[in-house]
Design a protein around this nucleic acid. Structure first.
Lengths: 196, 196, 196, 196
DNA sequence: AATGAATGAGTGTTCATTCAT
DNA sequence: AATGAATGAACACTCATTCAT
């Protein structure tokens, strides 16, 4: 028998990820994927059950990339705010280093296709868990603003993603508005009122 | 004699906007649009050059709706922060009152379709112009944090959109985290450090 | 607007009927149908909801052909046996004159595809109704063998179909075994034992 | 050493026969066959030249089953009619005991696939040979109706097959219309007119 | 102006068969 | 001998768009 080409599924996923940011999820077509990867259309079905499965795998691969990146770079800091800042910093770094992955993730999360594809909730949710515990501690200690940690983290996430994208698209100049400024803004937003 | 035809394009746009949030941009089909509007398929081409044009008009219509809403509800307040808060409040109100329009806007802005369809940059950009002047004044007065106004307004925009969506999706409870809390957070983010 | 080509659906049905006897139901493909009719594949869907619908219409058209033929040629005779013989004769004549229709009908009725396609029972059932009443009368009069009329008619139907097919395929020589012989055999089978 | 391989072709044939009556010839797919038998898809081609060959072997196997059954159960009786009745009885019994085989046979014989697959005429023809000799003797003796023996036997065959199927499908109640009635009908059909 | 008819290109998916080991 | 990998051709069906009136 022929030996299996082990890298192929990953290769396909990578190609589709690029196609997603180039043309959008909605115009991903199995035929185009085949053409871009140079394998026959029917062959894609050896690795993926169907188109939905392929799209799901593409999304999960990017999520995994981000999770791995976070795991590799995050280490607990002294103080809730320091942890939150580190978290934000890592997201930015990831967005800069992996623009494709980041774009794919945000595009999926804003697409109704995403809702149709059956992705279990835990797979889909932003992985705020680890830092959320620390945020809660910060709130208990009176350092962090006493409100839903999800809201605080979401603000950070959205802001960093937008910032990274703006920098990439040259809408914002990172010299004039460096990452540190964004982190300062977020710190101000996070801090408990009495702590200012 | 008022002809029915002049309403038709708007009617089609409204229908498509609803279809976009129901099924996503990708599954908009001219045939379905024809069926939903009761207009013959070929007739759509009397009002729109092609599908891309239709989708573009749909997007621009929602943008216009938001601009109109802003114009109708915004009135200059004393103090930069008050203006910014009002601006944020209006965005939230619009998102709540016009979920379809808001969804369409964010869906488009996160999709490369957006880039492919020929929309001139000024049409696409968030219309921060009016409040931007006031923000700049606030910065000059030393009240508002001295950084790119676009960044400050984008944080507000993204945060409110996410908040409105989270409320709608019941991820965030508006009783526990009321709009005022979000505005407080934004105020903290906006204020010049020395003003805290 | 273009004027509708009214004959097209019928034309398609005729072509498919011929394809059925040439290649079998199972190898009917929309692409082949399109090629044979000379219209574009997508156009078939203007006239038929889908392939199942097309196959169903093809079958029903042949059934209708047979029903019409029976209606046009059957007239009540004096005596049950005379009626049954006339019925048998008409079936034979129809099979000879409409070999395609007859083949399609028998092929459908022996195919599991037939079961999958949703054809209401009354549409599918052999139309023995009219003659059945007369057979029952014959039984009541003691002329016809006292058993299920369906069985008696089915024997006639199967026998005539086989006979017509055998004649066509030159397995049986109609000079040596004329239709009258078959009818004699059937008469013997039908007659009540005491009437012999 | 008995190798497993020699049973494999037969095993495949049996599986396909069942699939034929479950889903019809048309939906037999080599992939499905492989899955059902647990043999790898490409391995089927070790035993069968191609799909047509497989289908042909399936058909011939059922024919052989019927021939064997006939050989095992038929024994010459005194009197032509007795022989013919026994023949008919055996066909019925076979149809009841081997519905799969019987269904496959009739499904094939009513399909042009049958004609396309290269099956030599003698393989395909109903094997009336043995009893035909006896029928001819009956005709010579003036007991059996003087006509083509093939016609007489075909009537019996078709009638029994239809009867068995009707009983199975509960269209005919075997209590109300027992096999003996069918045999009586056939006897009446067979007998030379003067012998009634 | 208005529209039903028409279609070629494309959609996702399955399939019989061959290849390479 | 045995089999997983691979594929081109086909499958049913949809679509954006144009045509003819």
């Amino acid at each position: 028998m022929r030996t299996k080409n082990e890298q192929r599924p990953q290769e396909i996923i990578d190609v589709v990820a690029h196609m997603v940011i180039e043309e959008g999820i909605s115009s991903i077509a199995m035929g185009k994927v085949a053409k871009r990867t140079g394998i026959s259309q029917s062959n894609i079905y050896l690795y993926f059950k169907n188109k939905d499965d392929l799209l799901k795998q593409v999304f999960l691969a990017q999520k995994a990339k981000m999770s791995d990146y976070m795991r590799d770079h995050f280490s607990e800091q002294p103080g809730a705010i320091a942890n939150m800042k580190l978290y934000a910093r890592i997201i930015y770094q990831f967005a800069i280093e992996n623009p494709v992955a980041m774009d794919v993730i945000t595009q999926y999360e804003n697409s109704p296709i995403f809702a149709q594809i059956d992705i279990s909730a835990e797979e889909a949710e932003m992985d705020f868990d680890r830092v959320t515990v620390l945020v809660k501690q910060g709130i208990a200690d009176g350092i962090v603003r006493d409100t839903d940690p999800y809201v605080l983290m979401a603000i950070a996430f959205d802001t960093l993603v937008r910032y990274a994208k703006s920098v990439r698209d040259k809408i914002v100049d990172p010299i004039q508005v460096p990452l540190e400024t964004i982190l300062d803004i977020l710190e101000a937003a996070w801090l408990a009122p009495k702590n200012r």
